[in-house]
């Protein structure tokens, strides 16, 4: 059902590094689940509206009133790479190769 290269593509989209073994296992396991799930595609759902919310609410809005923001030290307290300029990360442009 799910080919290895599809698994690799999805893993890239999801930012998950998979080992060869994991990718093989993932392809097999996901295929099995997808096989089971396939059945719903044969249902006649012509004209049925999709449900993304079961709650019957609209316009949950808030007033444009400021709240107390966090102290920057608290915001950065759990960061793996706190710096004076903010949350440190590898530069998106900088390639490792």
């Amino acid at each position: 059902m799910l080919e290895r290269d599809q698994v690799a593509h999805v893993a890239r989209l999801a930012r998950l590094e998979l080992t060869e073994d994991e990718a093989d296992r993932m392809a097999a396991e996901l295929s099995k689940v997808l096989d089971h799930i396939e059945a719903i595609r044969s249902l006649d759902l012509e004209g049925v509206e999709p449900t993304s919310h079961v709650v019957d609410v609209v316009n949950a809005l808030r007033a444009d009133t400021p709240h107390q923001s966090l102290d920057p030290a608290v915001a950065l307290a759990q960061a793996p790479e706190p710096t004076a300029a903010g949350f440190g990360v590898p530069s998106p442009g900088a390639a490792a190769e």
Binding site: L16, E17, P80, E81, P92
Partner: peptide
Amino acid sequence: VRYGLRVAGDADLTTMYSRTRA
């Protein structure tokens, strides 16, 4: 980036993401 585990090394951004999550 903001909290929790980071697996970094000398990795570039995409590798940092993928390894951290893996």
